[in-house]
Design a protein around this nucleic acid. Structure first.
Lengths: 275, 275
DNA sequence: GCAAAAGTGTTCTTGATACACCCATGG
DNA sequence: CCATGGGTGTATCAAGAACACTTTTGC
């Protein structure tokens, strides 16, 4: 395949695309102790994070697994492009979407066209992801058992995990991996899954309730056959200053024809508070 | 000026560029109490943050002030492109450089070509920035007295400041606004300038020294005519996990011909620890 | 009443804050 | 000897970690 000579490719501006790291809690019963687990210390019974990857149908890295991605269109915001890429490849509807980082540079294309990728990361609720239906070209992998990945996608995923682990401490990302409501034990499980270490349940409970971010829904659920647990919902704080900037600062929601609802949905995905 | 019809522009991929928010401490003696200061409460004697802007020579926003920027070249990393844009427009050599965010979407071009901007932020040491020489098309402005800005550059700057204020708490960014060595009072001043509020000097000193990030250089300096203060230098922590990913993960430093030294310099600018 | 999870109490340590105080230096 | 900034000490308060304990439920 030919695209100009070398010097042309050097000075020409690179192509742009979007990719998305999609994260969800593993299917129920996934405790992280799979076949590949032999002499691993500290193998607790947490659930793990899983993510969907797509199989590449082009060179380079043909047949390799890669992050879902797509084009960047001039008439869409970056978020919209990310959302579209995510939706069209995986049929998922995330509960969180945030720009992660933009990757570029001459070494990452590996023979393909020079490429700048604006990468987003997304969180999908447990019920939404419960299917985990692997299509021909889409398959879910647990975070700690990833296959060989195309390009620098492995580092990108690692960075997304790092960001998630960092962000869990001062934002509501943990709740986005569950449904709209949840018990304290479920939330506790998410924190342990993400952090990778055990957290004292008693202190965790107190801290969460003291934060004022949770609201008692009045409901109760029984997971096993024991005492039922109270169900909470996340209450967004008094909205302070916005965290990562998002483009809908007024006149952004323009003529998206049949996409109005998705727009509203998107707005709810954009993070707030801190960086 | 014509660039295709509307529908062509919609579906075509957008252009990409880099911009840089450059921050430095104000010139000595700048206490933040300028002409525009009348009934402002809490006008302490901190120094302020200043940043260089360039005057636009093209439509749209011709004559407006804007962030320094440039093209993205396929044969350079994003950092290198940002560094080049910064250097060529302002002649400065930053002590810190980090990717801030990537901005895009249909509403931000305002009649120009659809544009995606990968924005970096940079910190310049006090001595380096001491010149504050305003050229014909470059001029320094204090952070709280910015002129009308082109595009969404005002929001971008606000976001950079937000990031700086957040990042000061868990990284060494504050030291990057000074020289390689500094006294505790100088550092204290930077924290107050960035945070905007007064900090107890005694506690600040203890906290800094307890962190183990500072090393006594053995030197002493006298700023006024009183007791000389010990001079410290910042000691990077035992390198934990890397914060924002940077592309030089091995085989990146390739054939940059006469650019070798700058490459090494660049490496030292990339942040570590946390997000 | 027993197991298991829900939920509460109590102690101890650590770190931050507020603020009083002593020390070194040049005029 | 005094003004000024450098530097230290100390009491108080709040958040977090550790862990013992009580309560509610189904079997």
């Amino acid at each position: 395949m030919g695209f100009g000579n070398v010097s042309e490719r050097r000075s020409a501006p690179p192509q742009v695309g979007v990719s998305v790291v999609i994260l969800a809690l593993g299917p129920k019963g996934d405790t992280g102790n799979s076949a590949a687990d032999s002499g691993n210390a500290a193998n607790s019974a947490h659930s793990r994070l899983w993510l969907p990857l797509v199989k590449r149908v082009r060179q380079p890295f043909l047949g390799c697994w890669a992050l879902p991605g797509g084009d960047l269109r001039s008439d869409r915001s970056l978020e919209q492009s990310a959302y579209a890429a995510l939706e069209s490849t995986t049929d998922l509807h995330p509960r969180y979407l945030e720009q992660l980082y933009t990757f570029g540079g001459p070494t990452r294309s590996h023979g393909g066209l020079p490429m700048v990728s604006v990468v987003y990361w997304a969180l999908v609720g447990q019920t939404e992801a419960a299917g985990f239906e692997d299509g021909d070209n889409v398959r879910w992998f647990p975070e700690d058992e990833l296959p060989e990945l195309a390009f620098d996608h492995r580092q990108i995923i690692d960075y997304a995990l790092l960001r998630l682990r960092s962000k869990i401490e001062y934002s509501d990302v943990a709740t986005r991996l569950l449904g709209p409501t949840f018990t304290l034990r479920q939330l506790h499980g998410v924190y342990e899954a993400i952090g990778g270490e055990t957290l004292d349940l008693a202190n965790f409970r107190r801290k969460m309730l003291a934060s004022g971010d949770l609201e008692d829904t009045g409901e109760k659920v029984r997971e096993g056959r024991q005492r039922p647990a109270t169900v909470y919902r996340y209450i967004p704080k008094r909205l302070v200053e916005n965290g990562t900037p998002h483009e809908s600062d007024g006149d952004d929601i323009v003529e998206l024809s049949r996409q109005g609802e998705r727009e509203d949905a998107l707005d709810a995905l954009i993070p707030s508070a801190r960086i």
